[in-house]
C-alpha cells in the first residue's frame, strides 16, 4: 500500500475507532436543521424556500466543528513532527488528511442531507442538485478548513479562532451551493453554479496544499 493511502487509511481508522466523532457531526448537522422549523415556524412554503440555505449553513457548521481535531492529536502526541520529516511531500499529506476528513464528515453529511430535505419540505426536483452541489462543495470545505486547522495549531482558544478564520472563506461555496439548488427549483438549470463549484474545488485542491503544508511546517518547528 502506498504511503499516501496508508495515511488516509490511518486517519479513517482513527476516526472509526473514536467512532463518536463522525456520529456526533451528523447528529449536530440534523439538530441544527431541526432548530429552524421550530424557530421560524412550520409553514411548509417558507421551509421549502429556505431549505437549501439552511442545509448548506448547517453543513458548513458541521464540517467546521470536526475540523479542529484534524491535526490536534497529531500535534499533541508528536506524530506531526514525524509526518513533517517523512519522505512523502507534506502537500500530499495535507491532501490525504483533507480526503480523510471528507470521507469521515463530508460524505456522511451528503448521505444525511436528503432526509433533512424531507424535513424541510424541499421540492423533489431539488434533491439531485442539492446532492451534486454538496458532493462538489464539501471537499472544498475540507481543504479550506484544513488550512485553518493547520494555522491555528497550538493557538489559544483554537476552536473559536478556527471558525473566525475559516467561515469567511467558506462563503463562496455557500453562495454557489445554495444558488445551484435555487436555480434548479426555478427551472433555470444549475449547470453554471455546479461548474463554478467544481472550479472552486479544483482551485482549492491546487492552492490549499501549499498553504496548508507551509502552516504545518512552521507549526512543527
Amino acid at each position: 500500500m502506498s504511503p499516501l493511502f496508508a495515511l488516509i487509511a490511518r486517519d479513517i481508522r482513527l476516526a472509526v475507532r473514536q467512532g463518536a466523532d463522525s456520529m456526533m457531526v451528523i447528529v449536530f448537522f440534523v439538530l441544527v436543521v431541526v432548530l429552524f422549523p421550530l424557530g421560524i415556524g412550520p409553514e411548509p412554503a417558507i421551509l421549502a424556500r429556505v431549505a437549501a440555505g439552511v442545509i448548506w449553513v448547517a453543513a458548513l457548521l458541521a464540517a467546521m466543528l470536526s475540523m479542529d481535531r484534524l491535526y490536534q492529536s497529531d500535534h499533541e502526541d508528536g506524530s506531526l513532527e514525524l509526518l513533517v520529516l517523512s519522505p512523502l511531500p507534506l502537500e500530499l499529506q495535507f491532501l490525504a488528511k483533507a480526503a480523510a476528513h471528507w470521507l469521515t464528515t463530508g460524505l456522511p453529511l451528503i448521505i444525511a442531507a436528503p432526509l433533512l430535505g424531507v424535513f424541510l419540505n424541499m421540492r423533489a426536483e431539488g434533491f439531485g442538485v442539492l446532492l451534486a452541489a454538496l458532493a462538489l462543495g464539501t471537499p472544498s470545505l475540507s481543504l479550506i478548513g484544513g488550512v485553518g486547522a493547520a494555522l491555528s495549531l497550538g493557538a489559544r482558544r483554537s476552536g473559536v479562532l478556527l471558525s473566525l478564520l475559516v467561515l469567511p472563506l467558506f462563503i463562496p461555496v455557500l453562495i454557489f451551493g445554495v444558488s445551484a439548488v435555487d436555480a434548479s427549483l426555478t427551472g433555470l438549470g444549475a449547470k453554471a453554479q455546479l461548474l463554478i463549484l467544481g472550479g472552486l474545488l479544483l482551485g482549492a485542491a491546487a492552492l490549499t496544499p501549499w498553504a496548508g503544508a507551509a502552516a504545518l511546517r512552521q507549526a512543527a518547528e
Binding site: V147, L151, G154, A155, L161, L165, A215, A219
Partner: peptide
C-alpha cells in the same frame, strides 16, 4: 490569529500565511 500564540514569531508566520 496573529495574537493567539504565546510565541510571537509563530503568530506572525501563521497570520502571514
Amino acid at each position: 490569529l496573529e495574537g493567539a500564540f504565546d510565541d510571537r514569531s509563530r503568530g506572525a508566520r501563521a497570520a502571514a500565511i
